[in-house]
Simulated scan of single mutants.
Amino acid sequence: MTASTSLIADLCIYLLTWNVGTHSPRDLPLASLLALNGTTNCPDNQLPDIYVIGMQEVSTKQVLNIFQDDPWILKFASTLSEHEYVKVHSKQLQGILITMFAQHKHIPHMKDIETEETRTGLGGLWGNKGAVSIRLSLYGTGAVFVCSHLAAHDKKLNERIEDYHQIVDNHKYHVSGYRRIFDHDFVFWLGDLNFRLTGDMSAWDVRSAVEHGRYEELLKLDELVLMRETGNAFSLLEEQLPTFAPTFKFIEGSNEYDIKRRPAWCDRILHRVQANSYPAITLSAQQLSYQSNMEYTLSDHKPVSATFSYKIEANNLTYTDEELHEMTHGAASTVSNPFNAELESFQ
């Protein structure tokens, strides 16, 4: 930041995605998963300002109970409340789940919160595949967080591409100027995207390449990388290429690959920022980390996390986030604020 700029917001956001294979959290310790053990990758190793957690294949037994959160949300809430976080919002579509937690001090700067869902399973009739999202005005800027679970299996690339476009087309919000996902200033997309490797390498050969650290060679065959390059899917988003081993498919309870499937980077986190959308305002999202956590062996997927700085700077002018909100969202909020009920539940 220079002498001619003022900082409206400088946040650290921690994103996590994990396909838990219908398992319950039970007594699973979450400190390492949430980087509460001193390894957050945030500046000065501070705790994140905001957590956004996306999950796939959570058990659907709880879905019919509309009066109680999923056990995973309750487990995350219990862990994070010890560090003064509150739940902002959550959304579940069968086994697909997204939830957001924030430090108390940021609550007044979150407005116009909405959730959305898109079903893509069985031609859009079933929610075992699809996406859920949370969008909001965050310090005056439009931010959306999307968690998706796309079509599985090696031969289903076209279905994954179709799922992506169906989600983009069908996700619609009610806030003026931010009706669609890519209308937002900041977009974060995470989940079990299920992209596999092209070509005919055997599972044995892929595993051998992984064991010898030949990630760069394998990523040249990665469907998501190729689809972004060709513009077929996710081309509006950026991804820092993984430097960790493929996160699927493991033998549950171990760190050994189950070679019934070729190892693949199914679990991914991407982002997009429209840096210069407004006069005299600069937006940035610098990725600070991207990693898997091999410590967790609950399912056949490894959890993947990423940390981002979320920065809003005003050039040669001084804005409050309220003034920026009026500029970006209009003077009147169109969506009710859920925080009173949410905060009461944590007091």
Rank of each mutant, 00 (worst) to 15 (best):
F188I: 11
K302P: 09
F250C: 03
T230I: 07
Q240Y: 13
Q46P: 04
F101D: 01
V187S: 01
G142Y: 01
L270H: 04
D200K: 06
K75E: 12
T17A: 02
M227H: 13
S299M: 04
A245N: 11
I251D: 03
N255W: 09
S202E: 05
K302G: 08
L80M: 04
S289L: 08
H23S: 05
V273W: 01
N194I: 04
Q166C: 14
S90N: 13
K61G: 11
R135V: 01
R26C: 08
K220G: 11
G213P: 03
S78W: 05
G231Q: 08
K156R: 12
N232K: 14
E117Q: 12
V210S: 01
E223Q: 09
K156V: 04
E84W: 06
S208E: 10
L224G: 05
I107H: 00
I259C: 14
F244I: 06
S32Q: 13
I312V: 15
I113R: 00
G121W: 09
V273D: 04
T243W: 13
E84K: 10
L33C: 11
A203W: 10
L343D: 00
N232C: 07
V210H: 06
K105Y: 15
K91C: 09
W189R: 03
D70T: 05
H271C: 15
I281R: 00
S292A: 14
A306G: 05
A285R: 01
V132S: 12
D70L: 07
I73T: 11
Q46R: 15
N340T: 07
H271P: 11
L298V: 10
A306Q: 02
W189L: 14
T198H: 03
L224S: 07
H174C: 14
P29F: 07
I269L: 13
R261H: 12
V132Q: 06
F186V: 00
L219P: 09
K91Y: 08
E323F: 01
G142F: 02
C12R: 05
S277C: 09
C147G: 09
L317N: 04
T79C: 12
S81F: 05
L15N: 14
E238S: 15
S137D: 08
R196E: 04
R26K: 06
D169E: 11
R268K: 10
L7S: 14
S208Q: 08
M110V: 01
K155T: 15
T334Q: 11
F186R: 03
T118Y: 01
S59M: 08
S24D: 15
